[in-house]
Design a protein around this nucleic acid. Structure first.
Lengths: 179, 179
DNA sequence: CACCGTAGGTTCGTTCATTGAACCAATTGC
DNA sequence: GCAATTGGTTCAATGAACGAACCTACGGTG
């Protein structure tokens, strides 16, 4: 099957990477997973992705070892999807894409990433502009930027308005749902 | 049109970027353009991409200001596609993807990127491991790694076997074509 | 016990994108 | 006059994405 994921003729690690994470929606699922989203329904409402596509992406990301599916309660059976180290290693890719998007598509500052240890800003390549170190994902705190919608419709976006350390599970607020 | 390129609900510069360069083949076309490929036929044989898709990608990349189409001879009319600054700014994205591909998909060293000024290796985020500076794309020299096929079928891959400064036009060798 | 709500999916018909093969056009070299 | 080169377009077939509907398993409420 020449269509879809494989770039047969390419002898290149960029092509290898894109075969795994280059499909539509895949990198946005990984982004949400790094932001702490873990549950099927949270991905669903936050991404606005068709259910069938989300199921397919979660399955292949799990097979590829980027997410790990694990049961967090037995009755009723409920699973969550957690990023692995391999998934967390995609952070520089997402950082680079976000930087390019901000610089060359849309200048607004939607989210700001801070180094938890020193308070500096994590810029282009995942480096802290204050202390100059390469900040691991787990030491990054995401805070809303000035131009982020302050009253979004879905509960996941609302939960992401609070300062949030990456990788830690997101706690949605089921209390204030909208009709 | 909800299908295809837009991620309507996403308020995120990663999604903005993916709307522009997230389609199938697009980032590989940009990669080739950074490697110095400029002509329709060179993209075609090197990527193994369907002609209709290549035409579509070259058109949208030109419209987005990532490539610039320009006439290099009048009779017969011939155009080439050259990366703009906006396109060159995607270098960190490609570097990050390539790094992840090498680290987490396929461990082989296919290409090595060297800093022209100091001879160091350009690693993960486009930084030189010897002098520590962020190397601009135009100062990067690509050399074949030990595991790259040393006798590829298409002339573009053969031309890319020679050490090659990025962004500079690729000179294919029309002499030794294969049947 | 009937019924609703929630979480996590699958199924299915329609629409859109990708593919590969064929065709087209302008010009140079023989 | 004829083939080759370069840079495309067109078209039928196939695959992927979309959105709506449906399904399962449980818990809570009246």
């Amino acid at each position: 099957m020449a269509l879809g994921k494989d770039y047969a003729t390419q002898e290149c690690s960029i092509a290898r990477a894109l075969e795994v994470v280059g499909e539509r929606w895949t990198l946005l699922v990984v982004r949400d997973a790094l932001y702490g989203v873990r549950r099927y329904n949270d991905f669903l409402v936050h991404l606005g992705i068709p259910r069938a596509v989300l199921s397919a992406r979660l399955r292949t990301l799990t097979e590829e070892g980027i997410l790990e599916k694990r049961r967090y309660q037995e009755a009723p059976p409920r699973d969550e999807y957690v990023v692995t180290d391999r998934g967390a290693a995609l952070w520089p890719v997402l950082r680079a894409l976000g930087q390019w998007g901000r610089d060359h598509v849309d200048a607004s500052r939607l989210r700001i990433f801070r180094h938890a240890d020193c308070g500096g800003t994590v810029e282009s390549y995942g480096m802290c502009d204050a202390c100059g170190t390469l900040v691991p994902v787990s030491d990054v705190v995401m805070v809303p930027g000035p131009e982020l919608d302050s009253a979004p419709a879905d509960p996941v976006s609302r939960a992401l308005l609070r300062p949030k350390r990456l990788l830690e599970p997101l706690e949605t607020d089921p209390g204030q749902h909208v009709d």
